[in-house]
Each structure stands twice: as C-alpha cells, then as structure tokens.
Write a protein that binds this DNA or RNA. Sequence first.
DNA 1: GGAAGTACCAACATAAAAGTAAGTATGGAA
DNA 2: TTCCATACTTACTTTTATGTTGGTACTTCC
Lengths: 114, 114
Amino acid sequence: MRGDVFAMKCPSRTVMKHMTSTWGVLTLIALKSGTLRFSELRRKVNGVSERMLTQTLQQLEGDRLLTRRSYPVVPPHVEYTLTDLGHEAAAHVECLANWVEDHMPQLAAMPEQA
Amino acid sequence: MRGDVFAMKCPSRTVMKHMTSTWGVLTLIALKSGTLRFSELRRKVNGVSERMLTQTLQQLEGDRLLTRRSYPVVPPHVEYTLTDLGHEAAAHVECLANWVEDHMPQLAAMPEQA
DNA sequence: GGAAGTACCAACATAAAAGTAAGTATGGAA
DNA sequence: TTCCATACTTACTTTTATGTTGGTACTTCC
C-alpha cells in the first residue's frame, strides 16, 4: 500500500508533481496560515494566472490536501482551506523552500542556466 | 542575501525547480547513499533517458549540490558525489518523498487526472 | 571481424505545461 | 448606463520538458 517514487507508474509521482510544481508550492505555503478565497490567493501568490491557480487548486483538492467551500452568493465567494494532510504536506514543502532560501548564497553563483 | 520563492525572478525558484524536478528528486535520493557513476545512476533511476540524466546532473552540479569527477581512462569513467549542501538538500527532498509514499492511501483515491 | 560498454553531445520530434484572451452571471458603485 | 469585482471555463498560442536517434573514441569480449 506504500508508494514508491522510483516506480514510474506509481501515483505518488503525480502527487509529488502537484506539490512541487511552481504554483503548488506557493499555494500550499500561502494557505498554511489559514483559509483564503480565490482572489486573495491570486494576490498572495505573485504571478499566477487565473487558469493556473484554478488548475493547481483542483489538483490539490483531488489529492485531499485542501477543501473548497463555495457560497452561492451573488458575487461568487469560494474559500480554500488546507486539510490536516495538507498542513503536513505544506510543512514539508515550506521546510524545503526555507532551506533553499537560506542557502541561496552558497547555491548557484552564476544563475544563467535554466 | 536570502532567497524568496514568492519572488518571480528570484534564483531560488530555479534551484527549487532543479531539486523538485522528476529526475532531480530521484537523482538526489539515489546519490544519498554514496558516489555513483553515470551508468549506475541510469540503472538506479528507473526510466531516465541519457539526455535527461545528463541535463539533471549538470543542473545539480551548477547548483553546487554535487561534484563530477572524470577519469581519463579508455572506457570513460565519471563519478558523481553529493556535496555537503547536496546531502542536506537530498535529506529534505527524501523527507518529502517519504511523506508522500507513506500517505499514499490517504491521498488520491482516483488517480485519473494529470 | 563484429558487437557491446562507456559517457556523453547535437539535432530533431513530440508531449506536456503554462500563459493569453475572451466569455459567463449578477449585483453594486460611479 | 457603463464598469468593476468574483470565480471560474473554454479555446488558442507559446514555452518548456522530455524522448529518440545517431554519432564519437577506444577497448574488451566472442
């Protein structure tokens, strides 16, 4: 029942991909400090397009890392909240991001390659 | 001097991308247990093409996460070893991967989306 | 003599990811 | 009355990622 990221077809790879994607990382970290609605996330996650944010949120919801709550009011109102699993996931991702941020001076002297 | 993954142009994003790329993750984890040569890595990292492995190794080398040592012998012999930084990076990445592997049953019930 | 192994590179082709623009419904503000 | 905000979707284009093939230089094995 355990996943194996070394196995090409293991679904754990898909979850990893979602969590470590550019916008997945930022979305998880952004939601760590609490529930946010779509437009708030969009402002917080610098540079995401609506399309990408929607897609990222749907992926993370499909992985049960967050829940979507939509209120049927006239200007749409939708809230996104991390699940318990999501909080754990976000903690790991943030830990990684913090490490990279902290070690930037030592990493990459000449950032000219993609 | 500290990086910021929320900043679109921050080089930390590039490093994150290298570390969390499909093959970056597997390469780092594979090298955690010690030096490996190219062909050994290729066999260990299930499914990677030569091209992708080469590229991944060059990126990680550029980020100072591993070192390349090449011996000028007749059948080429090249060894890859994690740096101290690389070991730290690999630990974080493996931690994340382990978490995902351990929680697979709870994540993703129907893995039909990309 | 011919095949295989080694660690690549370059060119080409395809697949996947990401961005752009426009459309939708509705209420409230200007 | 026109415009904006909201939370999306859809179609389309561009960019990036990845895979495939073939070549290299030399040696050992069959």
